[in-house]
Design a protein around this nucleic acid. Sequence first.
DNA 1: CGACTGTATGCACAAGTGTCCACCAATCCA
DNA 2: TGGATTGGTGGACACTTGTGCATACAGTCG
Lengths: 227, 227
Amino acid sequence: MKTADPQPAITDAAPEAPERARVGRKATITREALLEAALAIAGPDRGLSSLTLREVAREAGIAPNSFYRHFHDTNELAVALIEQAGDSLRRIIREARVRAVSERSVVRTSLEAFMEPIAENDQLLKLFLREGSVGSPELRTAVERQLVFFEDELESDLRRFAELRNHRLEEPHLAARATTRIVFAMATRSLDLAPSERAKLVDETIVMLRMVLLGARAFRSQHGQPG
Amino acid sequence: MKTADPQPAITDAAPEAPERARVGRKATITREALLEAALAIAGPDRGLSSLTLREVAREAGIAPNSFYRHFHDTNELAVALIEQAGDSLRRIIREARVRAVSERSVVRTSLEAFMEPIAENDQLLKLFLREGSVGSPELRTAVERQLVFFEDELESDLRRFAELRNHRLEEPHLAARATTRIVFAMATRSLDLAPSERAKLVDETIVMLRMVLLGARAFRSQHGQPG
DNA sequence: CGACTGTATGCACAAGTGTCCACCAATCCA
DNA sequence: TGGATTGGTGGACACTTGTGCATACAGTCG
């Protein structure tokens, strides 16, 4: 296998030196393979930040020292993993968006498109949901950054949709944020649920989201309204 | 080893076994002191589940082996810590509730009462917010259980309040859940914010919560309404 | 060919971990 | 007084961890 496979998009924009190794020994293991190995280890019980250098190396089938050729740290690997998960996440959402415009219930369609890969075996997604807010500062900001990407895309969606239907929409940014956090919290919760109970959770989540959207329409942004 | 401490219901007001040691050597260090020590170590960067037996013992000033006299495991300690944090949390909320009924804005008063101890140095609270969903299955269910307690109390609050003001309130359970998750997500986020930015986050959170409450009033529980 | 270079490995080390064991210390009850 | 019981200690064990150093491997270039 060649490293030459560009695969440029981990962060969306990093140039990432596509011509790294023109001379010297061919890499027997790629950076991506290491990420995969780490993913395989980091089950539900183990925080991403508890990953061990030797452990990852073992899983990937290389010597512990070789790890340093690809990452300087396990933290660095964790951050890369989060960013990759975030990309995967937003890709899912974009697909959901495409599907949603032609369906009856935008909320339901989008949410189901979001939940489905979680019910499947998308380790990346599970990882992202779980990682939340523990770990090194870099890791935390990495997660937060991805969440904000998510919120931003959702906000412009909400804006477009409201305009399309001639709805009022007050504070779309906050509506997007509330929606995001609810969805993530519920998706995380669904990870510990039996598949049979997930459908119910989806229904409940839809109700919550509709509350937010209804509220965003009814909201008056003036201050000091009655409690 | 026996836990010996019956701890019949984590729910409320645990009697806390006042007569544990009637015979034998006087304990030089209490179970609580160990919890405190663990709390002191578990900073923002370290997940609760990465605590080390020896580490906690060192911080508490006892021999590693003595740890076993109080907890069978670091996991057990972590769960105890979470439950303690949950209690502290609900105590705060009850106080907020008392204050809130005599104030103008229930939402703002409650939320500020919630955020204030976080801005202070309540390590317990920070811990709880952060721990979210990583760690052993026992730890995760412990966190989830505390969240549900929280939701239940909030739900009955919402119900009472709606009745008092003659408001409609559809699906109060889900309104409570949405509220809870938003508050927790935002509180967690505020942990990484400079104090000067927290006020803004509180304001934004209030808007989000009002959206939910407004939506819960406007909501029609019938199925299949227009998207 | 040999020189050069990036990749991967083996070995070793100090440090840290959980846990077992025997032992001491204090306190109560008979 | 003397068990009985509980709390705490110290030493040792087998193990894992991150990392430094020297060295072998596999290419590419002149």
